[in-house]
Design a protein around this nucleic acid. Structure first.
Length: 1006
RNA sequence: GCCCCGGUGGUGGAAUUGGUAGACACGCAGGACUUAAAAUCCUGUGUCUUCGCGGACGUACGGGUUCAAGUCCCGUCUGGGGUACCA
C-alpha cells in the first residue's frame, strides 16, 4: 500500500469531527493547559500559507500537552466585526453579516483541511448577538465603575457617590482618591452635591467613570467617516486603508485605560513575553517621573481671578534656573487671553494654521521649527525674572499640561527653538558644550542655580522637588504617554453601545435588555447630517419607543478584549462565563499571534482583564502568561523577462500598411523571454546572443514577410528586458513550466524562450503576498499536492517560529520524502530493504515484535529526549530534523520493530497527526493516538560506552580519539599523552598544559 | 534620533551552558535501477591548496578576554522591526 495521504487525511479529519476528539473537559482532575491563537478577522481573500503558521505551532503544543497528561483547551473563533466587510457593504449593498458568514465558511473549510485539534464546540464570533451581549454587559460594568486611587482598583460608581454624599469633593484633598481630575471638576460640598440636579450629577460622574463620554482631541478619519484609537493610526494615516487622519475636538465614548497605566506597566514584569514586545508596551505607556510647576503670569490683571498660573510638567525640575522661556501648545486654553494686542493677528494666524494641519502634514515637517511670541510674560518662580511666553507646535496639547518650561541649554527641542528664534541659553549644569548642542545628560554639577549650586543632578532633583512642594508651586508627579482610548466608532458593523439618552443624559441599559441588537439600515453610509449609519435605523429603534440610542458602535478591539474568557464557557446564557470555569481555566498558558498587536489588542485585553478582576468576576490579573509572536511569511515572487524589441519595415514599405494589417502583424510577432542568468549577455550586447535570438525569430520573420509580402521586415532588439510577475504555480524550483506558461495568459500563447541549460530560470524577489503579484500560496494547494501533514511539517521546518521568512516550496519535497520514508518503515521487508512488492503491486504491512537492539533503543530515546526539549522551548524546526535523523537511522538499521516504531508514532503525532493516526491504527490500536501517553525517555539507553574525544593543540582540532567512557580525567590525559599521533604532533616537546574536559574535549597548550 | 532583534556554505537553517562550526533539508555533481521517464537508492559537496596523505583559511569587519569564541566584552559596518517633537 502506498502512502495515500489524501484518503488518510480525509478519513481522520472526519473521524475527529465525528468523535469530538478534541472537546475540552470542563470538569477534569488533570492539570489544565490553555493554548490560544489570536482569532482571525475573516477576510474575503481567505487564508494564505502565512496564516496557519502560528496555528500549526499551537496545535503541536496542544496535542503534545494532551499526551503529556493535560486537560487541553484549544479553541478557535472569529473576530467578525470590522471595516472590510462594511466597506464592501457600502460598495455593493450586501449586508456585512452575509459576507462575513460566507468568509467564515471559507475559512472553516480551509482550517479543517489542515487537521487542527480545535474544540469547535466552543467557537465564538464577536458579531454574534449571543456573544456581543456580554461585550455590551462589560461596557455597562465599565460605565458603572470608577478607579479608586487609594485602593488602586476599580470600584462601583456607587461608592464614589457615597463619598460625594457624605464629604463632597475637593480636588486638592481628594487627589489620592480620584487622581487628576481637578481641571474638569470644580469643588463642591456634600450639601451642594445633594442639591444638584440629575444632569449636573451625571456630568460630574462622567469625569470618573471608566467608560465615559468626554470631549477630547481625537483622530478623525474623514474617508472612513470615523474616529480611530491611537494604535489604529500609523504615520498619520489609518492603519486600515491608509487614509489621512486629522485631529478634531469631539465628544466621544472613551475608556479610562490611563487609570491602569501603572498596573499595565508593573504587570509586564510577571509575563513571559519577549523583551521587545514588553519594551513596545513600556514605550507606549511611556512613564516619566518629574514635577509639575506653576509659573505666575506677570502683569495681567484680567487673569487674576481665572488662572493666574501656567502649569507645566517637567522631568528636569533641577534645570529650573535655566528656563529662558515658556512654550504653550497652540491649543492651550490660555493662548487667547495671553496674546497682547500687538501680537493678536500673528498669533491667531499661527494657531489656526497649526490646528488645521492634518497629523500627516504635522509629522511630515517635524524638523521645521515654527512658533510665535504672545507678548506676555510669566515670573520665574525662584528668581522672579520676567520670562516670555511663546507658542509652538512642538508642544503637544494632549501630553502633560500642554505647556513646557523651556531650558534650551539642556533640552534638544528647546535648544533648536531657542536657536531658531534667537532666545537666550542659560547653562545650569556643567559638562557639555552648549555652544554646539544641548547638554541633556542627567549628570554633572549644578551652576548658576542659587541654592542648587554645586549639587549633582540627582541630589538637585530631590532638593528642588522638595522646595517646589514646600512653596506650593507644584509637586512631584508621574506622567504617562498613554492616552485614554477612544471607544466610539461612527460605523455600522460593530457592537451597538448599550446607551440611550433621556433629557440629554446618557443611561445604560438594564441587563435584561441585552443584547441591544444591531438594527437594520437602508444604507451603510453616514446620514446627510453626518450622523453615523445607525441614525438610519427605523424610527421605532428607540429605547422604550421614546429615547434615542447611542449611534456610535464599539471599535474592533472591543470583542477581542475578553474573548479568551468566553471560550471557557462559550454557551453560557446567564453570564459571560461561569466563575467556576474561569477559576478552573484561569490564564492562557500559551498565546500565539502577530507582533502587530503589541500596542493595541494586547494592551486592551490586559486592561479589561484587570478591570474584571477588580470587580471580582475573575481571579487573574493578566490574560496570558506566555506569548509568542510568530513571524510573517512573505511571498516569493517569480519573474520572467520579456525582451523589448521592435519589428518593422524600412524604406518605402514602411507606413503603407493599414491599421488592421499592422495589428495582424503584431499578433504574429511572438513574445520572447530570456532566462535569468542570460540577462547579462543581453546587457553586454553579446553577438552570440543576438544571433540566437535572430535564429529563433527567423521562422516568424519569414512567415510574416511572405504573408504580407514584406521584403525588409526585421526585428531589432533592445538591451533591456521587462520583468513580469509570473504565477508561482507554474514555476517549480524557479524553473518555468514553459508549456503551462503559454496557456497561462492569452497574450503569452505565442511565446519563445531563450534558455540556459535547456531550462527557463525565473528571477526571484521577496515581496508581500498579494494576488496582483501572483505569489499567493494557499494552504489548500499544498494540501492537495502533498497533504496536510507535509504542509504542517514544512511550515515548521522553514525556520524558527518567531522569525519572518519568505515562503518557498523548494524544500517541500524533503519533508514529504521524510513522511514517505516513515511509511516505508512499516511496509519494509527486513531482508530486502525498500518496499516489498507483492503480486498485485502492493507492499504489505510488515511489523516485527522482536526485541529491539541497544542501538535502536538509543535512536528512539535520544529522539524522545530531543523532541521534548524542543517542544518545550518552541523550537519546532529542530525537532523535525531530529525526526528525520531518527527515521534515517531506523531505515539504515532496517528496523520494523513495534517496540520502537509505536512510541515514535506518538512523538510525531502532534506534528503529523494524520499519517501517525493511520499507522497507529494499523498497529492494532483501537483508540485515537490523540489520547496515547507520550513516552518517557530512559537515560540508561543514552549512555555511551566510549567517548570520541576531539584532541586539539592550542584550540585547533588535530584528531579524535575514541576512549572508554569510564576513564577519569587523569586517565584520559595519560591515554592522550601516550598516543602515537600526539607524539607526532608534539615532535618530542612537552606541552605546557593539558586541559581535559570530561567527556567533552582535550586541548594541549604548547 | 531613540529602543529592540539579527548578519553562519550556492539556499533555508543547526550548534540549548564558551568545548569537533556547517546538523537536517534543498540545490548541484557523479553513479545504480529503467527501453525511457517518474519514483527510489548510493556517493560527493564551506573556500583555497595538494596527484594523494595532508595543510592553510573560514561564522559581516577591526580589536580584546580565554587553554578554547559563531557564542562573552569594546568599536565599526550592515539588514529588519518598533517608536518618534511625550517636555
Amino acid at each position: 500500500m502506498e502512502y495515500n495521504f489524501k484518503e488518510i487525511e480525509q478519513n481522520w479529519q472526519a473521524y475527529w469531527a465525528k468523535h469530538k476528539t478534541f472537546a475540552a473537559d470542563n470538569h477534569s482532575t488533570k492539570p489544565k493547559y490553555y493554548v490560544l491563537d489570536m482569532f482571525p478577522y475573516p477576510s474575503g481573500a481567505g487564508l494564505h500559507v502565512g496564516h496557519p503558521l502560528g496555528y500549526i505551532a499551537s496545535d503541536i503544543v496542544s496535542r503534545y500537552k494532551r499526551q503529556k497528561g493535560f486537560n487541553v483547551l484549544h479553541p478557535m473563533g472569529y473576530d467578525s466585526f470590522g471595516l472590510p466587510a462594511e466597506q464592501y457593504a457600502i460598495q455593493t449593498g450586501q449586508h456585512p453579516k452575509i459576507t462575513t458568514e460566507q468568509n467564515i465558511s471559507v475559512y472553516r473549510k480551509q482550517l479543517d483541511k489542515i487537521g487542527f485539534s480545535f474544540d469547535w464546540d466552543r467557537e465564538v464570533r464577536t458579531s454574534d448577538p449571543e456573544y456581543y451581549k456580554w461585550t455590551q454587559w462589560i461596557f455597562i460594568q465599565l460605565f458603572n465603575s470608577w478607579y479608586n486611587k487609594s485602593t488602586n482598583k476599580a470600584e462601583s460608581i456607587d461608592s464614589l457617590i457615597a463619598v460625594f454624599e457624605t464629604k463632597g469633593f475637593n480636588c486638592k484633598l481628594d487627589d489620592t482618591l480620584t487622581g487628576d481630575v481637578e481641571k474638569d471638576v470644580a469643588p463642591f460640598t456634600a450639601e451642594e452635591w445633594k442639591s444638584f440636579d440629575e444632569k449636573k450629577k451625571s456630568d460630574i460622574l462622567m469625569n470618573f467613570r471608566i467608560a465615559y463620554l468626554g470631549e477630547a482631541y481625537v483622530n478623525w478619519c474623514p474617508q472612513l467617516g470615523t474616529v480611530l484609537a491611537n494604535d489604529e493610526v500609523k504615520d498619520g494615516v489609518s492603519e486600515r486603508g491608509g487614509y489621512p487622519v486629522e485631529r478634531k475636538l469631539m465628544k466621544q465614548w472613551s475608556m479610562r485605560i490611563t487609570a491602569y497605566a501603572q498596573r499595565l506597566l508593573d504587570g509586564l514584569d510577571t509575563l513571559d513575553w519577549t523583551e521587545s514586545l514588553k519594551e513596545s508596551q513600556r514605550n507606549w505607556i511611556g512613564r516619566s517621573e518629574g514635577s509639575s510647576l506653576k509659573f505666575k503670569i506677570a502683569g495681567h490683571p484680567e487673569l487674576v481671578s481665572a488662572s493666574q498660573f501656567i502649569e507645566v510638567f517637567t522631568t528636569r525640575p533641577d534645570t529650573v534656573f535655566g528656563v529662558s522661556f515658556v512654550t504653550l501648545a497652540p491649543e492651550h486654553e490660555l493662548v487667547e487671553l495671553l496674546t497682547t494686542a500687538d501680537n493678536k493677528a500673528i498669533v491667531e494666524d499661527y494657531v489656526t494654521k497649526a490646528k488645521n494641519r492634518s497629523e500627516r502634514e504635522r509629522q511630515a515637517d517635524v524638523t521645521k521649527i515654527t512658533g510665535v511670541f504672545t507678548g506676555s510674560y510669566v515670573e520665574h518662580p525662584f528668581t522672579g525674572k520676567q520670562i516670555p511666553i511663546w507658542i509652538g507646535d512642538y508642544v503637544l496639547a494632549g501630553y502633560g499640561t500642554g505647556a513646557v518650561m523651556a531650558v534650551p541649554a539642556h533640552d534638544t527641542r528647546d535648544y533648536s527653538f531657542a536657536k531658531h528664534f534667537n532666545l537666550p541659553l542659560l547653562e545650569v549644569i556643567e559638562g557639555g558644550d552648549i555652544e554646539k548642542e544641548a547638554y541633556d545628560a542627567k549628570e554633572g554639577k549644578l551652576v548658576n542655580s542659587d541654592f542648587l549650586n554645586g549639587l549633582e543632578v540627582k541630589a538637585a532633583m530631590k532638593k528642588i522637588i522638595a522646595e517646589i512642594e514646600a512653596r506650593g508651586l507644584g509637586k512631584g508627579k508621574i506622567n504617562y504617554r498613554l492616552r485614554d482610548a477612544v471607544f466610539g466608532r461612527q460605523r455600522y458593523w460593530g457592537e451597538p453601545i448599550p446607551v440611550y439618552y433621556k433629557n440629554d443624559i446618557p443611561y445604560v441599559l438594564n441587563d435584561n435588555e441585552l443584547p441591544l441588537i444591531l438594527p437594520e439600515v437602508d444604507k451603510y453610509l453616514p446620514t446627510e447630517d453626518g450622523e453615523p449609519p445607525l441614525a438610519r435605523a427605523a424610527s421605532s429603534w428607540k429605547h422604550e419607543g421614546k429615547y434615542d440610542y447611542e449611534h456610535s458602535t464599539m471599535p474592533g478591539w472591543a470583542g477581542s478584549s475578553w474573548y479568551f474568557l468566553r471560550y471557557m464557557d462559550a454557551h453560557n446564557g446567564s453570564a459571560f462565563a461561569d466563575k467556576k470555569l474561569t477559576d478552573y481555566w484561569q490564564q492562557v498558558d500559551l498565546y500565539l499571534g502577530g507582533s502587530e498587536h503589541a500596542t493595541g489588542h494586547l494592551l486592551y485585553v490586559r486592561f479589561w482583564t484587570k478591570f474584571l478582576k477588580d470587580l471580582g468576576y475573575i481571579n487573574i490579573e493578566e490574560p496570558a502568561k506566555k506569548l509568542i509572536n510568530q513571524g510573517m511569511i512573505q511571498g516569493r515572487s517569480n519573474f520572467v523577462y520579456r525582451l523589448n524589441f521592435t519589428s518593422g519595415q524600412v524604406g518605402e514599405e514602411a507606413g503603407n500598411k493599414n491599421k488592421e494589417e499592422t495589428e495582424q502583424i503584431h499578433k504574429m510577432v511572438p513574445s520572447v523571454f530570456i532566462s535569468k542568468s542570460r540577462l547579462k549577455e543581453l546587457e553586454n550586447d553579446e553577438v552570440d546572443l543576438h544571433k540566437e535570438i535572430q535564429t529563433l525569430l527567423e521562422p516568424y520573420r519569414v512567415k510574416i514577410s511572405e504573408k504580407f509580402n514584406l521584403k525588409t521586415f526585421s526585428f531589432s532588439i533592445s538591451k533591456m528586458a521587462v520583468p513580469i510577475n509570473v504565477d508561482i504555480n507554474i514555476v517549480d524550483n524557479d524553473v518555468l513550466d514553459v508549456e503551462a506558461f503559454k496557456n497561462w495568459r492569452e497574450d503569452f500563447k505565442n511565446s519563445e524562450f531563450i534558455l540556459e541549460d535547456g531550462k527557463y530560470i525565473c528571477g526571484v524577489e521577496i515581496e508581500k503576498m498579494s494576488k496582483s503579484k501572483y505569489n499567493v500560496q494557499t494552504p489548500d494547494d499544498i494540501c492537495e499536492k502533498f497533504g496536510a501533514d507535509t504542509l504542517r511539517l514544512y511550515e515548521m521546518f522553514l525556520g524558527p517560529l518567531e522569525q519572518s521568512k519568505p515562503w518557498n516550496t523548494n524544500g517541500i519535497t524533503g519533508v514529504h520524502g521524510f513522511l514517505k520514508k516513515l511509511w516505508r518503515l512499516f511496509y519494509m521487508s527486513p531482508s530486502g530493504g525498500g518496499v516489498r512488492q507483492l503480486a498485485d503491486g502492493e507492499a504489505a504491512f510488515n511489523i516485527s515484535n522482536d526485541e529491539p537492539t541497544k542501538a535502536e533503543l538509543k535512536t528512539l530515546h535520544k529522539t524522545i529526549k530531543k523532541v521534548v526539549e524542543d517542544i518545550e522551548r518552541f523550537s519546532f524546526n529542530t525537532s523535525i530534523s531530529t525526526f528525520m535523523i531518527c527515521v534515517n537511522e531506523l531505515t539504515d538499521a532496517k528496523c520494523n520493530k513495534k517496540a520502537i516504531l509505536e512510541p515514535l508514532l506518538i512523538c510525531l503525532s502532534s506534528y503529523a497527526p494524520h499519517i501517525t493516526e493511520e499507522l497507529w491504527k494499523q498497529l492494532g490500536n483501537k483508540e485515537s493516538i490523540v489520547y496515547a501517553t507520550f513516552p518517557e525517555y530512559n537515560e540508561a539507553y543514552l549512555v555511551d560506552d566510549s567517548v570520541n574525544y576531539p584532541v586539539s593543540v592550542n584550540g585547533k582540532l588535530k584528531f579524535t580519539l575514541e576512549l572508554p567512557a569510564t576513564l577519569t580525567v587523569q586517565e584520559v590525559e595519560a591515554e592522550v599523552m601516550k598516543n602515537e599521533q600526539t607524539h607526532k604532533l608534539l615532535d618530542g616537546k612537552q606541552p605546557k598544559k593539558v586541559i581535559v574536559v570530561h567527556k567533552k574535549i582535550v586541548n594541549m597548550v604548547v
